[in-house]
Design a protein around this nucleic acid. Structure first.
Lengths: 171, 171
DNA sequence: CAGGAATCTTTGACATTTCAAATATCTGCT
DNA sequence: AGCAGATATTTGAAATGTCAAAGATTCCTG
């Protein structure tokens, strides 16, 4: 009988015994990772099905949407946490589809600035609305107070991680 | 002078204004996503630098490590949350490197079972130890009580998401 | 103002990712 | 037996992802 059989048999079963034996940090990490993967995949599916777009495209357009003057590719790379080389291809495809425009400013010809076109803004606005609703839906069973608390607690994790990166010994 | 200039200018700045305007669920999601991305990238860098391995390879080997009898590719696919087609390639490369072995059982010739080789177990054991230490390091600034609490709270999110997937209308 | 260092983007080689279609094989039913 | 449908894996096309090296251009300094 089919059975839901969540695609999500888990991934939390990494490294250590079924559940108990591993250190709390590892357990937490595995759960964060699997949860994020689960939600990302769902969003990806829906973006594709309803808008024919990909998640990285959505991310990239989101950055441009709030910077009407556009962003240099390097800036885009940092904000989306995607490598430079990757941004090049992403922007190329979005440009081919007519959602993004590239311009080289007069001042500095090394630079490329990407901007959303009209079509891009229209598409993104629609996607953003749907995207927000999907998230509210997926988190419907979570107490709103927990949502807020989690936001701040995960901020602590993020800071901690940021302070312990390989190349980040700067104060 | 170089400046730390975290690769992490954020990604939380998606869709809505700098911080306030968006719904709590969206804010939480963006923060989860960026945090996970940050930590993943760090782990990837270190796996590559210290072991010449990739994160998906590590994940896959982790599953095989705790199932000495091996796993069918489909099972591996579910546990790693990676598509079937993807598992094929991952296993192929790991086999070429001598860390994994493929066998077709007599009973059912549709099936392929992957197992870790001796070399695979040795490598994975080393990686797992390092991996756990990296996580403890990256989460060093997080109160242990918070770590435990977060594990359970994120479990709530995961359940909620699981109950609101497109194709998961089962009870 | 020449030349090297710094900055920005692209390119190239690979690995990973997804989806859908194609292959194989097995199972159940008549 | 024989064939339709279910299972399991592979394949193929396209996008994304990383890193390192190459190209351009600008900046700085002697």
């Amino acid at each position: 009988m089919a059975e839901a059989e969540a695609i999500n048999v888990d991934l939390e079963i990494i490294v250590q015994g079924a559940q108990g034996r591993s250190k709390p940090e590892l357990r937490l990490w595995l759960r964060m990772l699997s949860t994020t993967k689960l939600i990302s995949q769902e969003i990806r599916r829906r973006l594709r099905a309803e808008f024919g777009a990909t998640l990285p495209q959505f991310d990239l357009m989101a950055q441009l949407y709030r910077e009407k003057d556009g962003l240099r590719l390097g800036e885009l790379s940092k904000r989306t946490m995607v490598t430079n080389g990757n941004v090049t291809g992403l922007v190329e495809r979005l440009e081919a589809d007519g959602y993004v425009q590239r311009v080289t400013p007069d001042g500095d010809r090394r630079v490329t600035v990407a901007t959303l076109t009209e079509a891009g803004m229209t598409l993104f606005a629609a996607m953003a609305t749907a995207h927000e609703a999907w998230l509210q839906d997926m988190m419907a069973d979570v107490d709103p107070r927990m949502t807020t608390a989690l936001w701040s607690e995960i901020g602590t994790i993020k800071s901690s991680a940021n302070n312990h990166l390989s190349g980040a010994a700067f104060e």
